[in-house]
Write a protein that binds this DNA or RNA. Structure first.
Lengths: 253, 253
DNA sequence: AATAAACGTTGACGCAACGTCAGCCGCAAG
DNA sequence: CTTGCGGCTGACGTTGCGTCAACGTTTATT
């Protein structure tokens, strides 16, 4: 059984253009080019195309697909078993996205008839959803599921008053860091007060405190430029660095 | 507090180019362009960028994001519902692909043959419309938002391995039912194996097993046309009926 | 045998969502 | 005064195709 572009395209549910492109980049070459220059495909190419499409469905880029399916070590059955695993994972991932989309929709629906209390709860949920969608995987990887869930729960349980307290504490922290930076000494009284304020601020969302975790977070402030930028913006250049040093002295003292 | 491109980029974890692009396409315009032509952003734009990035994390395209963040709540809701639909469609498609994978593996193991058409099941769009009944908006209306969300939550809480196992079991169940239907005997070995697989599949979501509940669910498969449609869609006509009969023999034997 | 429809072919340009140059301007520090 | 940093605007590159246009082949119909 042989196929022309049209036939194969219809069979596999891809466009003719796609087949031409795959030929062009050497991903799927026809078995033969006939006298009139037509591309002729056979069963072998059909099987290969199937594999290619599986990888494509998993969002593997064509370059990588090429090196996989043309590798001499390529084993169809093993590949299929891997597909099963990856597809299941993908489905779960989409399910997660769906959950967040769903939450957003519900927020919109409910906002109209919410009391102030409910609106605050909604506000918190929004913040959590934002966080989860953007940093969820990263943070869960670093701190573990339970810690993150506990922290989120603590955030949920906050009252509006507590939330304001937290905001105020952060402002105080910023001012204190600025003050401390004027002394230039990350081990001085001012600096240690800043570290203390930072600890207090943390306590609003962290379920428990440990010096190690505190120092670890401080380290991240200089490692991750998003945090660095955050502090430098609200305070001044070198703020993240200074805070890190202060916290190190604080946790070691 | 104001931000230049660099600052905002670092803060939000995106590139300067991205901000420039978002300005260009009118997705996120700076609050002001100062005398030297610099882009100046304020807190308002920071918030907006957060929102944009949230939707981007949900794989919404920038054009849609623009209409979401710059529109009233009503349009926002519609856009999100549309996105939800797309994600749901993607999920169904992956379901079909999982069926394809399972069948391909079985065919290799049993040295059977698949038609060229079967090899591309799930890659073509054809069948998706019929699945509306099980995954589309309709089912949300029929069972209510809460029930559907709760069901999805259950899958979300499963580990990737559990989920993969469940998918695998379901696909094997489909294949076994098809096989059993060829014998025509809902009390035969094949049919009982199918019922057994169905029990195994159930175990992933049911906390405990009882013959009565199993038989009850089987009965529902023929009573509720949505379930009937689901099985007939993935297997063939009469599948729900046949499975019901098989389970009845299984639970009574 | 002529002709039209339905195929096939090769360029070539367009698209999203940026990355990555090049070339230029403004401004604070050494 | 020049060095370095940050800002700016083009403009071209990338991936995986969609969508013409212009032209050759095969097949069906007149």
């Amino acid at each position: 059984m042989t196929y022309t572009v049209q036939k194969l395209a219809a069979l596999a549910g891809v466009s003719k253009r796609t087949l031409r492109y795959y030929d062009q980049i050497g991903l799927l070459k026809p078995a033969e080019i006939n006298a009139s220059g037509y591309r002729i495909y056979t069963e072998k190419e059909v099987d290969l195309l199937q594999q290619i499409l599986f990888y494509r469905a998993l969002e593997v880029d064509l370059n990588t697909i090429r090196s996989i399916v043309h590798s001499p070590a390529f084993d169809r059955k093993r590949a299929l078993e891997e597909h099963r695993k990856q597809l299941a994972a993908k489905q779960q991932q989409i399910n997660l996205l769906l959950g967040n989309v769903e939450k957003s929709i519900q927020m919109i629906e409910r906002k109209g008839h919410m009391s102030a209390k409910e609106k605050f709860a909604g506000f918190k949920e929004e913040k959590l959803a934002e966080n989860e969608a953007m940093y969820g995987e990263e943070v869960r990887e670093a701190y573990g599921e339970e810690v993150v869930d506990a922290a989120n729960q603590k955030f949920r349980d906050m009252t509006a008053v507590q939330y304001e307290e937290m905001q105020k504490t952060e402002q105080q922290l910023f001012l204190k860091i600025k003050e401390a930076m004027q002394t230039g000494n990350p081990a001085g009284t001012e600096a240690l007060q800043a570290a203390e304020l930072h600890r207090k601020w943390l306590a609003f969302t962290w379920p428990s405190y440990s010096k190690e975790a505190h120092a670890g977070l401080a380290e991240m402030y200089v490692q991750d430029e998003r945090f660095t930028a955050y502090y430098e913006n609200y305070i001044q250049k070198g703020a993240a660095q200074f805070l890190r040093d202060s916290i190190q002295h604080y946790t070691k003292g």
